[in-house]
Design a binder for these strands. Structure first.
Lengths: 103, 103
DNA sequence: CTGTTTTTTGCCAATATTTGACAAGTCAAT
DNA sequence: ATTGACTTGTCAAATATTGGCAAAAAACAG
């Protein structure tokens, strides 16, 4: 469960019966890189998420949420105070939403 | 409210009636750097948090939580799906806790 | 088992990001 | 106008991340 995004990408790719060899060039990378992304050893660039969603016929928002979640998890995974910190950050976001600074 | 950690550090420093000039050398940096840290323009290194907590007679865990929260916030601050992503990451952490992988 | 294709791994140069150090700047008090 | 505290800008140095290749490993077909 180290990279939910990577696991999802792989699942989607297999559903579509595509090989790394077929998908990687569409993202302008080689198979090695895409393999690492699927295993969570590399990060896909934020701006490539819409592209891969299109290639794999998946929902952009779902993939983006998974991707962001992985980024957050990376910050706190080894921290015993991680949960508290997340609650605090969440509160900050919630406050922002209540004030319509962001939709 | 861009850096809760920085704001806290500054508040603590002022409570102790200390100048940047006095604190910075104890962290092996110059006043310019510490000033930026307090304003959220630079990050204090994770491993320096216990040191600064000691210097400012503050609670390490509190400062660490603030620091982590800032890191998390930086990931999601411009993301409309940030809140969802945080919930997802939180769930992952909660799951981990329930299984005692971490205290 | 052998040959073929797919995926994984390791390495390191290239690129990108962050930091450290210094100089010059503002601001407030005197 | 001078002093002291803090801030800002710049840029090279240090770190971290990524891209690309080659070779190993794993999966699969015959």
């Amino acid at each position: 469960m180290e990279s939910q995004f990577g696991e999802k990408i792989r699942a989607l790719r297999e559903e579509q019966h595509l090989y790394l060899r077929q998908v990687a060039p569409l993202l302008e990378m080689d198979t090695a890189q895409l393999s690492k992304i699927e295993k969570g050893l590399r990060q896909l660039k934020r701006e490539q998420i819409p592209t891969i969603a299109h290639i794999l016929k998946a929902n952009v928002n779902e993939l983006l949420t998974l991707w962001l979640s992985d980024q957050i998890y990376a910050v706190v995974k080894d921290e015993k105070l991680g949960y508290q910190a997340m609650q605090m950050a969440e509160e900050k976001i919630r406050f922002r939403k209540e004030n319509d600074i962001i939709g």
